[in-house]
Write a protein that binds this DNA or RNA. Structure first.
Lengths: 359, 359
DNA sequence: AGAAAAAGTTTGATCGATCAAATAATACCG
DNA sequence: CGGTATTATTTGATCGATCAAACTTTTTCT
């Protein structure tokens, strides 16, 4: 293989100047049709590909977005972000954008990476996941006029309406509201909830969805409702423990909703009565076990993120509040209903089959 | 915020020339100690960061590796590659490398991406996953002298020894051999295997591990061994079906090994006798359910991949077969033993607890 | 038809770094 | 001490593209 052709080579072959070749690629509208055709022919004839770094050096644009990838937290919780990453990569590709990964050990370290990647024109903007209240990263990015969009709304009062902070989030409230309604429509009255300790932006949001739906129907009194709720940290074991606690203290329950699939799996395991269990995130586990779950539509989230981010690229990086389009996207999750296929209700008690197997 | 400082700015402040600044960063050894100190002081004082694109344009190096990210195949199987991606990103970062993601709809499309990314100096090399026999991608990359390492050995006879094809793989044979031995040491004799249809590079490899370990012990005759094996495609339902088939046709069994966690989960579900089940890949599911599983050490794989890939960068891209270091890495997996914690052996039969719950 | 406006195209400069070669400073040695 | 090696530093050119402004051609309008 010889050397790579450059704009100059293409220009020579097409009998035009460098700049015209450049125009054909970037602003084809201003090039006369037949000239453009000639240049395009030369491009394909030579197999020309623009040198991305040279372009970046000049334009200070990279068509690349950066996203931090955490060391895998061994498990279930990471899965949504992975799905999001896949969706983001795919949709970014469709828009001619690339995704660059990096890691960071702390918010400060991450800010350092922001600076490095931004100064080096490696990326045009960032996608942040798992934002916290009072996040130092968003403050820094805003201060330095660097484009970014967060997956997750800002959980602070004043930030929520801040027009310069773009975000996309999934409406956990709506998700649990729908899940509760679905159970109620199926005849359930006493619907329990296993959730995370407050304050937790996402956790509180989900809990409210259940709580409001329950109050609206009025099937149970407010004080009974309190007994139908168990607060615990995330995890399979915790879910099982919570379920056992419900069995002890809540009286009969018709269904259980959980703040996560991990909790739901635990609940399901400690669930000899085969009460309907609904999780959150629709992880592979939910699919495998046959657990209903609230699915976060990561495709829509990714689309929203890119929409906001590229909107930011195009226009100047102005934080103009007069912008007509909204500065955020709230995505409604989808309830995925499953029957307990995996551990069938009519499964024979443990030791009944031993003989048959070893017959 | 002002503009970004450049080498020239640093040079001016330090009272040296551009090139000396460059040398401090790239070949510090040739700069006199006190000059170097002065330059370094200027760098930190100005907060200078090299412009990555400018450097790339000149050096034709990007310090970035490309890897294709497939649209999520909804589920369990993707998880190992995700874990690998996390490990790769983390270790690449430690070596000053970045990871660039892209997608492709077909091998041809992927080759097109290779060309684009390579010509544009976007990446220095590629990491390929899920290689097939007679892979057009590896052939193309070899032909165009582009550095790459595959996660997965070449499954063709002649490719295996090809010194120009660098690869890292996990020794599935050793994994199943160890898993079989572990069961045998625990007293099991009749150990069944649920695997994938042949030909499948990875599948056949794993199966052989079990097969050989069984033959070596000689606890069962060769013809009995054949009845202890079920071949099926991957999936939870298929695993359950295979398990039921074993119960019907194999006679009593002491343990089951599976080619994947999906199969293992299925086997576990259709496993009223609570026979020990071992999966493969140590996915979150295995952890959640309490399934033993063969764990692919993705950290070691990532380390090996980067070692081979950077070795390739450093020296010329020569395919010199005289290279002393081996052209591949075979990583031994780790057996993770778990008790069925999740669905405890002594769990009370389904309807026994109903009364207690609704007491 | 002729001047002014618009459209199309070209030329020189530039982005920020490194390479290659030239120069300056220092060390070495008989 | 003079002269050659060696080390340290500097200068000019260059990577491949786009920007800004100059220039040429075509269109529009009176």
């Amino acid at each position: 293989m010889g050397e790579f052709p450059t704009v100059t080579d293409v220009a020579r072959v097409a009998g035009v100047s460098r700049q015209t070749v450049s125009n054909v690629m970037n602003t084809p509208g201003i090039v006369k049709a037949d000239t453009r055709a000639r240049v395009e022919a030369a491009i394909t004839a030579l197999g020309y590909r623009p040198h991305a770094s040279a372009r970046r050096l000049r334009t200070r644009r990279s068509s690349t977005i950066g996203i931090r990838l955490d060391p895998m937290i061994d498990g279930i919780s990471g899965s949504v972000l992975d799905r999001f990453l896949h969706a983001l990569t795919e949709q970014a590709d469709a828009r001619g954008l690339r995704v660059l990964l990096f890691t960071a050990t702390s918010p400060e370290d991450e800010i350092d990476q922001f600076r490095r990647l931004n100064d080096g024109a490696d990326v045009d903007g960032f996608v942040l996941t798992s934002t916290t209240a009072d996040d130092p990263r968003t403050a820094w990015l805003l201060e330095h006029d660097i484009a970014f969009v967060t997956f997750g709304r800002p959980w602070q009062e004043n930030d929520f309406t801040d027009p310069s902070h773009l975000w996309v989030d999934v409406d956990g409230h709506a998700g649990l509201y729908a899940a509760t309604r679905a159970q109620q429509d199926a005849g359930a009255r006493r619907i329990a909830y296993i959730g995370w300790p407050s304050p937790s932006g996402t956790g509180d949001d989900r809990r409210r969805g259940w709580h409001e739906a329950m109050l609206e129907r009025g099937d149970v009194s407010a004080e009974e409702l309190a007994r139908l709720e168990v607060i615990t940290t995330d995890g399979v074991d915790q879910g099982a423990a919570a379920m056992r606690q419900l069995a002890r203290t809540a009286g009969g329950i018709d269904a259980v909703l959980c703040a996560s699939d991990a909790l739901a799996l635990g609940a399901m395991i400690a669930n000899p009565a085969r009460v309907s269990v609904t999780g959150y995130d629709n992880t592979p586990i939910a699919a495998a076990i046959g657990l209903s779950s609230v699915d976060q539509p990561v495709d829509e989230v990714a689309a929203g993120v890119l929409e906001l981010l590229t909107g930011e690229f195009e226009g100047q990086v102005s934080h103009a509040p007069d912008s007509a389009s909204p500065r955020y996207r709230m995505v409604t999750p989808r309830l995925v209903t499953r029957q307990f296929e995996a551990i069938p209700r009519d499964s024979v008690p443990a030791n009944a089959l031993v003989d048959e197997v070893s017959r």
